[in-house]
Nucleic acid binder design. Structure first.
Length: 623
DNA sequence: TAGTGAATAT
DNA sequence: TATATTCACT
């Protein structure tokens, strides 16, 4: 019967690898999985889809106090069964006992356990209430009793092959009907890697299958996935023709971004605002999806990221500091999750996030410069000044210090990242004298008081960034891509970082698909042309965004390009209303989680346990 | 046999 | 609607 309601199992935890494993196993058993990352996200999802859930699966032993509380709420107030996934040899910790979970200790990779779990969930649901005119219990019981393949076959292929009617024995359905394959993020990543390795033109299903070496994965699976992949690619190229300044922003992706005012963090969970890894928010539309993929999925990058991994700190108190640490610490997990979500949900070529992911001392003062070309420059005082945290909002950094610069720009068909240390502010002043007028913001990461911008000279022009040194081409990252070490933001660390980070990255990929068209800013554009700001249309609100990570938090900096007409000679432009720059905390509790949450719940206005977390975070940072 | 586009199913 | 499967054709 087509009206049969599936049991949903919800998996959450802070370990994305674990999640993927469990999800895979569950789905292999044809269970519907609501795959959620954080506990708070899960909470919101549970509230939204409570009726559809029969059981909640979690890896409790990895959760913090917050997670334990949430589990209590799930069990007691929502009356849902919670099972804890952990290897049998692991004993429940104190939190687990307090939580009083349903104590399902399972090896979460074991298929038999999954089947057991399924039946347990069915039994639980069987005692449920009547709903929509049919008894849940009936449906669920029969669900269990019905073979999976029979379930899958219902109503399937009736039009295609009438000859198959009456042949639905169980053996036949085993052999004839493939279980629907779920492309996990990991699988897709390897799929993309295969394409990159083989080359776009040479990547055919058979070779991809061989490359991926995935048990059970057939050529047909890959062919299908490849078809979708190519279709998306094509769509992306078609839609990327309409953009200005090398940008391609959609209305819905950008609008919410400007809805919030800057003096506070953009932290309204009901807003689907942009993120470096949110496919809805392309900042720079770069030419090649492969570039994007390479960048996001580059093993070297991931390898280097992995050295940033900090073990989640489990805090057993409820103080703000505890929450803060919990929220901020599991960096890699969060970032990794972002990547996976990115691949899974946004594998199309439409978007590229020019996210510069250096590890950098965010604890110091910094100034963000942006221009209408969506270039972005971050000036960080060198360590001589790094202990100085007294810069006033809206005031540029003092000019007797040296700065380190991080920046990004789109030049022709390339997205470029820049990094340069040891330039004095004097140089900036000199160079900026004839330069762009633009928005700027300054702030102090410790206080998170990124201010609304006023118009100030930007030290750079789009077409030339003299403070950034020679280009280093790589494909897409050099083998020598540095591995940063986790640690405190000590002077020695900063020094080490400056010593090891290559001065400049240019991303390119020779496997770029045909039809690849140059996009971005023409270097022949005169400064005047560059300065003739276009009134943004509904579809072209632009901003630059840079994604930064350090040991304690990841931060996305967004600098809207402009919303008014002004030029370098328009000094009175300070009276213009300048769109705010936005600082987003992208760690646990950050917007990528909300994005995922929104995706998962289809909620327009998710309730927010998350809110709580984020407020705690804000409080902790700002006090 | 493999690759691909399109129809169909979920 | 998005995505996976299946089919038909080359």
């Amino acid at each position: 019967m087509g009206t049969r309601k599936k049991i949903c199992l919800l998996v959450f935890g802070d370990d994305c690898i674990c999640q993927n494993l469990v999800s895979e196993v569950l789905q292999h058993c044809t269970y519907e999985v609501l795959h959620i990352g954080r506990a708070t996200d899960a909470m919101n999802a549970i509230c939204k889809r409570k009726d559809a859930l029969s059981l909640v699966l979690t890896n409790l032993n990895r959760l913090s106090t917050k997670g334990a509380e949430i589990i209590q709420v799930i069990e007691k107030e929502l009356n849902l069964r919670v099972s804890s996934m952990m290897p049998r040899e692991v004993e429940l910790d104190t939190e687990g006992k307090e939580c009083n979970v349903s104590s399902y200790l399972i090896d979460f990779m074991d298929m038999n356990d999954m089947r057991e779990l399924w039946q347990s969930a069915a039994r639980k649901a069987a005692s449920g209430v009547e709903e929509n005119g049919y008894k849940k219990s009936d449906a669920l019981t029969s669900h269990v009793e019905t073979s999976d393949c029979e379930e899958r076959n219902q109503g399937q292929n009736r039009k295609r092959k009438e000859t198959e009617e009456g042949m639905e024995t169980s053996e036949e359905c085993e052999t004839k009907k493939k279980p629907r394959l779920n492309w996990t993020p990991d699988m897709h990543q390897r799929f993309v890697e295969a394409i990159q390795k083989l080359g776009y033109d040479k990547a055919v299903p058979k070779k991809i299958v061989e490359f991926m070496n995935e048990p059970g994965l057939t050529r047909e699976h890959v062919a299908s996935h490849l078809q979708k992949y190519r279709t998306n690619l094509k769509k992306g190229q078609e839609s990327s023709t309409d953009f200005s300044y090398g940008l391609n922003l959609t209305k819905e992706s950008t609008k919410p971004l400007y809805g919030s005012s800057l003096s506070t963090l953009n932290c309204n969970p009901s807003q689907r605002y942009s993120s470096p890894f949110d496919g809805n928010s392309s900042v720079f539309s770069t030419p090649s999806p492969l570039i994007r993929q390479s960048y996001l999925l580059n093993p070297n990058l991931l390898a280097s990221m992995s050295t940033l991994a900090v073990q989640p700190h489990i805090h057993h108190d409820n103080s703000n500091q505890g929450v803060l640490s919990h929220v901020l610490s599991p960096k890699l997990s969060s970032f990794d999750t972002m990547l996976h979500r990115k691949q899974m949900n946004r594998e199309g070529p439409m978007e590229f996030q020019p996210s510069f992911v250096p590890k950098m001392p965010l604890r110091g003062n910094f100034t963000v410069y942006g221009d209408e070309k969506r270039s972005m420059l971050l000036a960080v005082p060198n360590r001589r000044q790094s202990s100085h945290h007294s810069l006033a909002i809206n005031q540029p950094n003092t000019c007797d210090s040296n700065f380190r610069f991080l920046g990004l720009r789109v030049v022709n068909d390339e997205l470029q990242f820049g990094d340069k240390s040891s330039i004095s502010c004097t140089d900036i002043q000199r160079e900026s004298s004839s330069s762009l007028t633009t928005d700027w913001v300054s702030g102090n990461a410790d206080s998170v008081s990124i201010s609304s911008g006023s118009l100030n000279p930007i030290p750079q022009q789009q077409s030339s960034l003299p403070f950034l040194e020679s280009l280093v081409q790589c494909e897409p990252f050099p083998d020598s891509f540095p591995s940063f070490h986790s640690g405190e933001m000590s002077e020695s660390f900063i020094s080490q970082q400056q010593a090891t980070f290559p001065p400049f990255y240019t991303l390119y990929n020779e496997n770029s698909p045909p039809g690849f068209s140059a996009q971005g800013i023409s270097s022949s554009t005169s400064p005047e042309q560059q300065l003739s700001v276009q009134q943004p249309t509904d579809d072209s609100e632009n901003y630059a965004e840079m994604f930064l990570i350090d040991d304690h938090q990841s931060v996305s900096l967004s600098v809207p390009g402009n919303s008014g007409n002004f030029s370098s000679t328009q000094q009175e432009s300070s009276s213009l209303e300048v769109p705010p720059a936005v600082l987003e905390i992208n760690s646990y509790g950050g917007e990528e989680d909300i994005s995922a949450l929104l995706d998962a719940t289809d909620a327009e206005h998710p309730e927010s346990l998350w809110d709580e977390d984020f407020n705690d975070l804000l409080f902790s940072i700002t006090n």
